[in-house]
Simulated scan of single mutants.
Amino acid sequence: MPTNLGKRVVYQRRIARMTQQELADAAGVHVGTLRKIERNSRGASDNVVEALAAALGVDPSLLLGSRDRTDARVHAAMPSLSAVIAAYEVPDDGPVRQLNELRTVADEAMTWRLASQYVRIARHLPSLIGELIRAFHLASAEEKPEIAGLLVAALRTADAVAYKYSARDLSARLIDLMRWAAPYADDPLLDATVAYVRTETFFAARAFAPGLRMLEAALDRAPTSDDDAAMAARGALHMRAAVIAGRAGLVAAADTHLAEARRLGDAVSESVYQGTAFGPNSVRVHEVSVAVSLGGDHVRRALDVANDWTPPRDLPAERHSGFYIEVARAQLWSGLVHDAFKSLKAARHIAPQHTRDHPWVREDAATLRRLRRGDAESLSNFAEWCHAGE
């Protein structure tokens, strides 16, 4: 048990202006149990920590506190996740819930990914994926396509953790399994989603030009209808293509894809389509990402966006925090040291797990600490929190 878990619960409860009884009721725990947790006279299981965090409206990592403890919980799940996907053709026996229940839990897991709740994903996804694989093999012809789609969504959620925590081989295997399952869903929009996620393997290998070609081939295959879902699928692929073109230094290609993403984004409402946030706000975030990827004189574009626009609060946490991480890098490159640190703190507030282990955050925090060696204690605390310089 983290030594200061009780103090963190008390702190977050007071911020939320909740009594002990109100928090206990909202979390589904006995008020006497909560009192003991807050006094640090008893431990709290993972389920209780998650319930308290959900009731408080915060990420569980804010209650766990210790970065090492949080990381350990994620890494501990990797072997079981690896074992489950290795046996996808010959899964273990076990229970399988009804399709409507599987649909509900798969949708809930997607919300964890969008909210960057990696500890929760690591704990629950191995068993969910195992159950969905069993369900797929047992499904009737009528149910198999939908279950295949749910399996792809769950694999994508698990991949978010594998990729985030640098388990690159596991991430690649999860994506391969997504590519195996997607054809059974018989959904061209899902194929576009898989291509979007598959880009991670090209980012990891720094194979930017081949990644761009893969995305452009996926765009050639994508549905061309004008309904919102199809336009969002194409728009998301254009966003991704713009970023990877920027990483490759292909200015014209980046601008072309970004312009098409902007046109499609303006044609739909901001929402989550096939598990991917898309709309005018998401495109605006990617404008910053492309500018930072291109670097040099293009960085001014990122600062202009940041000066004129603030992401809405309801933008998914991972994308929302990513905006401030990208802006911080542009600000640091432009000598705006104070602004860069302010942006990093904003990212941390929005999605602590996403921010803490982002390589750019560590690099930028280490640079800030060198540039502001005599500055306030808060910068040193931030750098230690994200293990800057490691």
Rank of each mutant, 00 (worst) to 15 (best):
G130F: 00
Q117R: 12
L114S: 02
L125Y: 10
I147N: 06
I129K: 04
A135T: 03
L132G: 09
A139E: 05
A135D: 11
F136T: 12
S127K: 13
L128C: 04
S127N: 13
I147C: 05
R134T: 02
S127M: 08
I133W: 12
V152N: 01
A115I: 00
S116Q: 02
L151F: 14
F136C: 14
A115W: 01
H137F: 09
L125S: 15
L151E: 09
E131R: 05
E142W: 03
H137S: 02
L150F: 01
A115P: 02
I129H: 10
H124W: 04
I147P: 14
E143Y: 08
P126F: 07
R134E: 05
S116A: 15
Y118P: 04
H137Q: 02
P145D: 12
L114D: 04
L114F: 06
L132R: 07
R134G: 07
R123K: 10
G149A: 12
I121Q: 15
Q117H: 04
L151D: 07
K144E: 11
H137Y: 11
P126N: 03
I121H: 08
L151G: 08
S140H: 08
E143P: 00
E143W: 12
R134D: 08
F136Y: 15
L125Q: 15
A141N: 13
A141M: 13
H124L: 12
R120I: 10
A153L: 11
L114M: 04
A153R: 11
S140K: 06
E146C: 09
V119G: 13
L150Q: 05
G130T: 05
L128E: 01
R123G: 13
I121T: 10
E146Q: 15
S140D: 10
R134Y: 08
I129G: 06
S116K: 02
S116E: 03
P126H: 07
L128Q: 13
A139Y: 07
S140R: 07
L138N: 14
G149Y: 00
P126W: 05
S127L: 11
H124F: 09
V152R: 01
I133D: 12
G149C: 05
V119A: 06
L132Y: 13
E131W: 03
V152W: 06
E131Y: 04
E146W: 09
V119K: 00
R134V: 01
R120F: 10
S140L: 09
S140F: 12
L151S: 12
H124N: 14
H137D: 00
L114I: 01
L150K: 06
R120E: 14
I129S: 06
V152K: 01
A139C: 11
A141V: 11
K144A: 15
G130W: 01
R120M: 08
E142Q: 15
A115N: 09
S127A: 15
I121P: 10
G149W: 02
A115V: 00
A148T: 00
P145K: 08
